[in-house]
Structure formats: structure tokens, C-alpha cells
Measured scan of single mutants.
Amino acid sequence: ELIWEQYTVTLQKDSKRGFGIAVSGGRDNPHFENGETSIVISDVLPGGPADGLLQENDRVVMVNGTPMEDVLHSFAVQQLRKSGKVAAIVVKRPRK
């Protein structure tokens, strides 16, 4: 059984690379294997702001206090874009 651990990460936006993450998932883009609608970190740019803080497959729980459960992919992207220079991101990942 999976035990999820929650992490809060504060990312500083890089002028060229943004937050250095890509997200997939969302209500309109469920996971191809299990139908899960979570917003998921799909890519972490090496050397970017999120490197060492976020991991691929982290589930995004909140962005700047806005819940990311059962939202559209575009909504999640929009929340990240409009967060200015700093984003507080809450993620969960299975305990190893």
C-alpha cells in the first residue's frame, strides 16, 4: 500500500527557464494507464529552479494555495504562469 508524503517547495522563477518544470495530467488529460486525473510533474530541467526539489511523477496538490485536484491541465499551467517570481508548490510522492 502506498504511503504518500507531502512536500512544500518554493521555486524562484528563472528569467530564461521559468520554474524548470513541465506538468501533465489534469481532468481533461487522464493518465493513460490508470485514469488518474492528478496534475503530475512530467519533467524537471537539470540545473533549473526545481532541480533537486521536485521529482518526475510528483503529484501537484497545490500551487500558491490553489488546490490542483480535479482541475484542467490548462488551469494548472495558468496558475504556474501567473505566480510571478516565486511559486509555492505542494506535491506528494510515495514514501520509498
Rank of each mutant, 00 (worst) to 15 (best):
F75H: 09
G84I: 10
F19E: 00
D28R: 05
D51T: 07
I21W: 02
H31E: 07
L80Q: 01
E5V: 08
M62A: 11
A76W: 04
D43N: 12
D43Q: 12
T37V: 09
N34F: 04
L11F: 01
E69P: 02
A88T: 11
K82R: 12
G65R: 05
E56V: 13
S15A: 12
Q78H: 11
D14S: 10
I39C: 04
D70Q: 08
S74V: 11
S38Q: 06
D58E: 05
V77M: 11
I21G: 01
W4R: 02
P49R: 01
S38T: 08
G26Y: 00
D43C: 08
I3W: 10
M68Y: 06
Q6A: 06
T37A: 11
D70W: 03
K16Y: 14
T37L: 07
D14Y: 03
V90F: 03
V61N: 03
R95S: 11
T10E: 07
M62G: 14
G52M: 05
L2A: 12
E5N: 06
L45Q: 08
F19Q: 01
V90G: 05
I89D: 01
T10V: 05
L2S: 10
D28Y: 03
E5P: 04
M68F: 11
Q55T: 08
G47C: 09
V91T: 02
A76C: 11
L45I: 09
I3L: 06
G48A: 05
H31K: 07
R27N: 12
A87E: 02
G48K: 14
R93P: 01
H73G: 07
S38H: 10
Q6W: 05
V77L: 14
A88Q: 11
G20F: 00
I89H: 00
V40D: 03
Q55R: 12
S83C: 14
Q6T: 10
Q12C: 10
G48E: 02
A76Y: 04
S15G: 04
A88I: 12
R93W: 02
S42K: 08
G25C: 02
A76Q: 00
L45M: 09
L54A: 04
V9I: 12
G48S: 13
I89T: 01
M62S: 14
R27C: 13
D28L: 04
D28A: 05
K16T: 09
L54Y: 04
K96A: 09
K13P: 12
V63D: 02
N57F: 10
L72P: 14
A22T: 13
F75R: 04
V63I: 15
K16Q: 06
S74I: 08
Y7S: 10
E33M: 14
G52H: 05
N57R: 10
D14F: 03
D43G: 06
K85I: 08
Y7Q: 12
R81A: 14
V90L: 10
G35W: 03
K85E: 11
R59Q: 12
D51I: 05
M62F: 09
T37Y: 08
K13C: 06
T10W: 07
P94V: 09
Q79C: 14
V63R: 00
Q79V: 14
G25L: 02
V23N: 03
V9A: 06
W4M: 14
D58I: 03
Q6E: 15
W4V: 04
G35R: 08
A87V: 11
K13Y: 09
Q79R: 09
H73P: 08
L72D: 13
L53N: 08
G26D: 03
L45C: 09
N64Q: 02
P46A: 14
A88Y: 11
W4H: 08
A76R: 01
I39W: 02
V63P: 00
L72W: 08
A87S: 09
D58S: 01
P46T: 15
R27K: 13
D51C: 11
S74K: 09
K96D: 06
T8Q: 12
N29R: 11
K96M: 06
E69I: 13
R81T: 13
V23K: 01
K82D: 12
W4P: 04
A76G: 04
S38K: 05
N64G: 05
K82I: 11
G47A: 06
R17I: 12
S83L: 08
V77W: 08
P30K: 04
M68S: 02
G84R: 13
D70P: 02
L45H: 08
T8Y: 15
S38F: 09
K16L: 10
L54V: 10
F32E: 14
S24N: 13
G65C: 05
E69V: 08
H31R: 11
L2Q: 08
R17N: 14
R81L: 11
E69S: 11
G18M: 14
F75K: 06
V60W: 00
Q78K: 11
P46V: 07
I41V: 14
A22P: 00
M68A: 00
A88F: 10
L80A: 01
S38A: 13
R59V: 11
G65E: 13
I89M: 06
V71G: 03
S15F: 04
N64D: 12
N64E: 03
A76S: 04
A50W: 00
V61G: 02
R27W: 10
L54E: 02
R93G: 03
P46F: 06
M68T: 12
L45Y: 12
A88R: 14
Q55N: 11
F32C: 15
I3T: 15
K82F: 11
V91I: 10
D70T: 05
K16N: 13
E69Y: 05
E56G: 07
Q79G: 06
D14W: 03
M68V: 06
E33L: 10
E56H: 11
R59F: 03
L72I: 11
H31Q: 12
V90I: 10
I89W: 02
R59C: 04
G84S: 13
A76T: 03
R27E: 10
M68D: 00
R27M: 09
P49I: 04
V61L: 13
